[in-house]
């Protein structure tokens, strides 16, 4: 599965930007070991927008932590431009699953904080931050503390923080998770605009199949935990993509395939087909 697409891509770009080989991660607690990620291998091209979809707990956040070098794998390796990641990389922007805004800093300072340790000229950073805040509709909230922001606003601010320094690699862990459907759509459009012409390589983790397809060049589908890639799809819909692309048959074909893969894996269940009694006995099984 997915082998052919993978080979085709590698033929085009023989030297991948990021190579993930046999990556596994287990967490050890007192008496249990959780296998979060199981022998995962894939590559990224430079400038590629790669999405990861999969059920909760399948190791998506773990994958992000491993690629960024913030945690070390149990076995396997991550290589960026041929070099093995052994410590936290800093040429990166990360949108964590939680917004992680510093409560003691105004919104704008939360964003410019990204450059504080990187020796980027302050005024340039600030100008870019103002620009970004305007783009995501937070201009009026530049000088307030995060506790005055709504959940969605906080998340938008944290996205701005992740891209203000224009990193070559952007890792996003369910960045739109706390947003309502409409703002989500808007953010999906905005992300494309924000990254336009920057050539940023993106790893985008999401629960939303259609969001993944809308934004990505390629989608990795993870099965139930422990995480493993069960499918890989190239999305060759023309860019720039508008929301209306979701109504095209090509789009529906791709989302349909992902959904049926997840159904095969037992990740999505059609509850209508299950007897009410059986529902509870199987729900805990995954």
């Amino acid at each position: 599965m997915g082998q052919s697409t993978s080979e085709a891509l590698e033929a085009k770009a023989p030297e991948p930007f990021i190579r993930v080989t046999d990556l596994s991660k287990s967490y050890r607690a007192k008496s249990t070991i959780t296998h979060a990620l199981d022998k995962t291998s894939f590559t990224f091209r430079r400038g590629e927008f790669l999405s990861v979809v999969g059920p909760s707990g399948c190791g998506k956040s773990t994958l992000l932590m491993l690629i960024s070098g913030l945690t070390q794998p149990t076995t396997g390796a991550v290589e960026i431009e041929g070099e093995r990641v052994k410590s936290p990389i800093s040429d990166v922007g990360i949108v964590f699953q939680e917004d992680l805004l510093a409560e003691w800093k105004h919104t704008i300072d939360n964003i410019t904080m990204q450059g504080a340790f990187r020796k980027i000229p302050k005024d340039r950073l600030r100008r870019r931050a103002v620009e970004l805040l305007d783009m995501v509709g937070l201009s009026e909230f530049a000088d307030v503390y995060p506790h005055e922001l709504s959940g969605g606003m906080r998340q938008r601010a944290s996205i701005c923080r992740a891209i203000v320094h224009e990193p070559p690699l952007l890792l996003m862990d369910e960045p739109f998770g706390a947003l309502d459907a409409m703002t989500r759509d808007q953010m999906a459009l905005d992300i494309q605009t924000l990254l336009e012409g920057l050539g940023t390589t993106v790893l985008f983790i999401t629960h939303s199949i259609s969001e993944a397809v809308l934004l990505s060049d390629r989608v990795l589908v993870f099965g139930p935990p422990p995480g493993r890639i069960v499918d890989e799809l190239v999305v060759d819909l023309p860019r720039p993509r508008h929301l209306s692309v979701r109504e095209t048959p090509e789009f529906a074909a791709i989302t349909g395939r992902i959904r049926s893969r997840l159904e095969d894996m037992g990740v999505i269940r059609d509850r209508a087909e299950t007897r009410p009694g059986a529902l509870y006995s199987t729900a805990g099984g995954q």
Binding site: M65, S68, L70, P88, I89, S90, V92, G93, I94, F96, E98, L100, A102, M113, Q114, A116, F117, R118
Partner: peptide
């Protein structure tokens, strides 16, 4: 401090000392 903030600080290139003083 939210433990994940330390990850954030690390990804921003902050040293251990900077993580302490700034976070």
């Amino acid at each position: 401090l939210e433990p994940k903030m330390i990850y954030l600080a690390r990804s921003m290139g902050a040293s251990t000392w900077q993580t302490f003083t700034r976070f």
